[in-house]
Design a protein around this nucleic acid. Structure first.
Lengths: 164, 164
DNA sequence: ATTGATATGTTATAACATAACAACCCTATG
DNA sequence: CATAGGGTTGTTATGTTATAACATATCAAT
């Protein structure tokens, strides 16, 4: 459980208006759910809000603990189902490396995301990446459906401190 | 010293002399362990042999079951420690997407691997990839230490089965 | 023979994830 | 109205992946 309320948390590792960042994402989710005729229920909305609080990835059980504290559900399937819905709708991404979830930086476009994960502070920034395996895939005839791209390292802030 | 008789097709999706593939990998591991003065113990060697049997990724508990059947250890830490050693030495890669492990296609060079995972047959091919986040990282000042690149899709063989 | 380094064995538990079924809440239609 | 069906949530139980912590073994060097 990570209580983190700092606005120094960057989007692309840059300071930004996080409140705007949150409300924009929520509004987009509202619109998209309406357009797609899927239900943006209280549990689902709350899970997205929780993930939007910071740019760190949260584990399903972290999310569940928050839901539980608010009386919205206490058993793993509740959290996993909401997360699965949000991932399906493209509002949340799963970070394989961390077995954790993070709110999408831009749910309005369908995209194949890439991430930079700071191993010191846990911040995860979403980025755009080239298809790194296009060549190999083309040569071998492999048909790519989805590519996980997750870089791990140190964000600008954390490089300043010595971290062995 | 590059004894690469490599076709354009990544190992794993192409027919090849797998016996040679295995013994080459084992011989390389032997040499590197000797050179590095680390112990290539029976458990470690056997785990590598097990992973070398196919180009599919095995979970730690799959490996453990094999070890157990051969009287080489029955508790999770035995498998996880051997796997950690092999990963450290670069003889084995972890596939994050699958929470599983696969023998390295070419342990003789230090490399940052990328993978193509067939969702139908489970074959995993190792490939070379460009640094897909170099631009984003440079712009944001993120210092990349390691990048996970894992494409999922259909290998050439498994595409043929589809008849729509 | 003792020490120290390295590896393995074992217990216990943490952390992540899902199958299966019951209950609830709409709303569309008879 | 009622009631049937779809979608969502609640709950139980369990499956899967991973590690902390401590005990034992092995062996080389003092």
């Amino acid at each position: 459980m990570a209580r983190h309320d700092k606005s120094a948390t960057p989007l692309g590792f840059a300071a930004h208006d996080h409140t705007a960042c949150q409300s924009r994402a929520l509004a987009t989710a509202d619109q998209l759910c309406a357009a797609r005729r899927v239900q943006f229920t209280p549990v689902r909305r709350r899970v997205l809000e929780i993930l939007l609080e910071s740019h760190e990835a949260l584990g399903a059980y972290d999310v569940l603990a928050r839901l539980n504290a608010e009386g919205l559900g206490s058993k793993p399937p509740v959290a996993y189902r909401a997360l699965a819905f949000l991932v399906d709708q493209g509002f949340v991404h799963r970070i394989e490396r961390l077995n954790a979830f993070i709110a999408c930086a831009d749910p309005s476009h369908d995209h194949s995301p890439a991430f930079m994960i700071c191993r010191a502070c846990g911040t995860v920034a979403e980025a755009h990446a080239q298809m790194p395996l296009g060549d190999s895939a083309a040569r071998s005839g492999f048909q790519i459906e989805q590519t996980v791209i997750e870089a791990e390292g140190l964000c600008p802030d954390c490089q300043e401190v010595r971290t062995p």
